[in-house]
Computed example of a mutant assay.
Amino acid sequence: MLAAGAGLSVASLYYSQPMLGVLGADVGASTQSVGLLPTLTQFGYAMGILLLAPLGDRRDRRTIILIKAAVLCAALFMAALSPSISTLFVASLVIGLAATMAQDIVPAAATLAPETHRGKVVGTVMTGLLFGILLSRVVSGFVAEHWGWRSMFASAGVSIAVVGLVAWYRLPRFKATTHLSYFALLRSLGALWNRHAELRRATWSQGLLSVGFSAFWSTLAVMLHAAPFNLGAAAAGAFGLAGAAGALIAPVAGRIADRHGPALVARLGAGLVVGSFAIMGLSAFMAPGAQLWLLVASAVGFDLGIQAALIAHQSIVYGIDPGARSRLNAVLFTGMFIGMAIGSALAAVLFAHFGWMAVTALATASALAALVLRMTR
């Protein structure tokens, strides 16, 4: 149940990406304006993690999850009914804020898990979350092409309503692990950041990897929509099937982290991301058909690497202080989604002015910086 809830909630962040080409034409928005939709969603998610996720240490996580489910459901229906790009901007920001219920679900799983199997359990729940991220693009591309982009947002709203109902009946209550006030909780984030070098390293590394991840996915649909490919939303969404292979690595990465240490897994993951992004540079010398196959192979590779690194980084930060898991998780994922927001924003500008190879260069450089950071002490 936790894996499904995490997957469906975080999927809300990504439904728009394969639909940007058809969505922009329908509301009369420019390519650069439409490119801001995933940026706002990811920025809202980062802010929601920073400002709301720490409450999981102070309040019953079950109550927090139920409230966020209600807000997220309403925001998705707002997007479905949006008459203009400006309304979609507001809906996207709120979707990002409320979709942080996924980041209440993951620490809940870590709390319920026995110490010796925490990496495996977190990896299992993260499999659901990662499938939500990656398969959301497949589903939204197909639905948008056959029934329109508004139908996708409406269907997503229904799915979150179901998650909320199931959580109401099945999710146990959680005891608070701190009695700090809300503002003291927020201040403690800075103290945790300053106190723990491993938290800083994990956050910076995952944030840099996320720059390239978001740059690729937020511009892929627009790139495939243009010549020489001229492909629709369904084709762009189908790339999520390639990326979904990355979700399969989560339980394996968790078990390896339990046995051999998460630092090794983080280094291997970052190295795989660098190689996968770098080989995309070869597409400039290939025919369109061969380019598509290279993009598929690259998507499999960098998704495997990024998800393995994420499981490793979560194992690292969850082991720092059991009483502050929600706050530690908030710091890690704030950095991650700030990286995603930066990646989306930079990629929209680079693609509009310099083309796809500039996006590839950005993704490769940011992943290389993450690898260097993981290799140094």
Rank of each mutant, 00 (worst) to 15 (best):
S298R: 06
L294Y: 08
A69Y: 06
I160T: 02
G355R: 07
P54R: 09
S92P: 05
L224N: 05
G305Y: 02
V125W: 01
A233C: 11
A266K: 03
T124R: 10
M19V: 12
A11R: 07
G269L: 06
I64A: 13
E145T: 09
A108L: 10
G243F: 08
V273Q: 06
A238P: 09
R200W: 09
S86Y: 15
L36G: 00
G123L: 01
L189P: 00
A29C: 09
L88C: 12
L52R: 00
A113W: 00
A75S: 14
V166L: 14
F43R: 00
F333M: 15
A245R: 04
V211K: 01
G289Q: 13
V94L: 14
L272K: 05
H117V: 02
L185Y: 01
R201H: 13
I249W: 10
G212P: 00
V163K: 03
V222S: 10
A347E: 07
A226L: 08
S33L: 15
A290C: 05
S210L: 11
L350P: 07
S210A: 15
R58N: 09
L13C: 14
L50Y: 13
L37V: 13
S315C: 14
I49S: 13
F337V: 11
G289Y: 02
Q32Y: 10
S86D: 15
A144I: 04
A29M: 11
A161W: 01
F142R: 01
R374D: 15
R200L: 09
A309L: 12
F285S: 13
L272T: 07
M286L: 15
A99Q: 07
A184L: 11
A25P: 04
L36C: 05
R327D: 04
T111P: 00
L76M: 15
I256T: 11
G335D: 03
M101Q: 12
E145H: 10
T41N: 08
G119A: 05
A6L: 09
V106W: 05
V349Y: 08
A284H: 11
G246H: 00
L112C: 04
A4H: 06
A176P: 06
A227D: 11
L248C: 13
A352C: 02
L328E: 06
P172S: 03
H313N: 15
D303K: 03
T177W: 03
V273G: 02
F77N: 02
S12Y: 04
T111Y: 08
L81R: 15
G246V: 09
W193P: 01
R150V: 01
S159H: 04
F216H: 04
P251Y: 11
G237F: 04
R173A: 11
P172L: 04
V349I: 13
L241H: 07
I306C: 10
A358Y: 07
Y182H: 10
T87N: 10
G119Y: 03
H260R: 15
H179T: 15
V125E: 01
V94T: 01
L112K: 12
S366Y: 00
G24C: 12
A202N: 08
